[in-house]
Design a binder for these strands. Structure first.
Length: 297
DNA sequence: CGCCAGGTGCTGA
DNA sequence: TCAGCACATGGC
């Protein structure tokens, strides 16, 4: 268990605020939040603002620690530690996936990137929206979804909206969702929301199942194929064997198969054998590296 | 303007 | 099982 301390910022008493501090060794906050696994964080004056559940959190990294403040006491240090996966030993994970030069360089460049433990429903809904789409637009779509159907939340001057419950989205119409710019994903999202809302898909149960069972269950949702299921298993259900393959990862995988043309399934099977139990971490390092280094071809 | 984006579902072989 | 195709939309 991490040591928790509190510290009072050195500003005039009337403006003083109490921040909580949690240890964050071997962690890179900005890299993690910019790596395309979460879509709702925004940066202001060196602080990152996000919404976890029904509360806003503002957080910044100071060396090997995170300082944060939240709109609700339910956002405990333990909860944030868990969200950022700071309880995992990153060295061990990176050692296990550091099996070739390509991933080795990605690790050197982005060390501290961690796979978040996000809410299962939010991850599922978000990645249905993410299919055949670009990250900028995904962020806009999800913002509009929260604005229209979430509950207002705030911290000091910062205002936002929580992620809508499955019941709320299930109660909308396809037309309403299309009006938010979801395009052909609108009926997929609504159908999946209904599956969760009526209890056909019990997301709370998935956490204790293994990767294959989780993926099988997720594939039963409309708008969820191989890639989206892997993203949800990885970012929402801690299934680190999951290895989502999108167009960026297809490019990354050319490194291993210069000439032979491989199906996504072939690449997927190879990656899981090649990288092992934490293949998902390798995927996230390669994905982020390719997207941030201009050499994409 | 044309190309691309954290793909999926459907169809027909 | 697998290739080929349609699908909405906005950023660049």
């Amino acid at each position: 268990m991490p040591v928790i301390e509190e510290l009072r910022a050195e500003i005039p008493p009337t403006l003083s605020r109490t921040f909580r501090v949690i240890p964050a060794p071997d962690f890179a906050l900005r890299t993690t939040l910019a790596s395309g696994q979460a879509f709702r964080w925004t940066e202001h004056d060196g602080w990152f603002y996000g919404c976890l559940g029904e509360s806003i959190v503002k957080v910044r990294q100071q060396g090997e620690a995170l300082e944060y403040e939240a709109s609700s006491p339910s956002l405990t240090p333990a909860r944030l530690t868990r969200y950022f996966a700071l309880d995992l030993n990153l060295s061990d994970i990176l050692s296990s996936i550091n099996v070739d030069i390509q991933v080795h360089h990605a690790i050197l460049r982005h060390r501290g990137l961690r796979v978040l433990r996000q809410d299962g429903w939010e991850t599922l809904a978000s990645f249905i929206c993410a299919s055949f789409n670009n990250i900028k637009r995904i962020e806009g779509m999800i913002d509009r979804l929260c604005l229209a159907y979430g509950r207002p939340v705030g911290l000091h001057g910062f205002r936002s909206f929580s992620f809508p419950a499955p019941e709320t989205i299930a109660a909308t119409t396809e037309r309403q969702l299309r009006a938010l710019g979801l395009g052909y994903r609108a009926p997929y999202l609504k159908a999946t929301a209904r599956l969760v809302a009526d209890g056909t898909l019990k997301l709370a149960h998935l956490r204790r199942l293994d990767y294959d069972a989780v993926k099988r269950a997720l594939l039963g949702c409309d708008g969820v194929g191989d890639k989206v299921a892997d993203c949800v298993a990885l970012f929402g259900f801690e299934k680190y064997e999951a290895f989502p393959i999108d167009v960026w990862m297809e490019r990354a995988m050319r490194y291993y198969f210069r000439h032979r043309k491989m199906t996504r399934k072939g690449l997927h099977d190879y990656a899981r054998r090649h990288f092992g139990a934490y293949a998902g971490y390798a995927q996230q390092y390669l994905f982020h590296d390719l997207r941030t280094s201009g050499r994409n071809a």
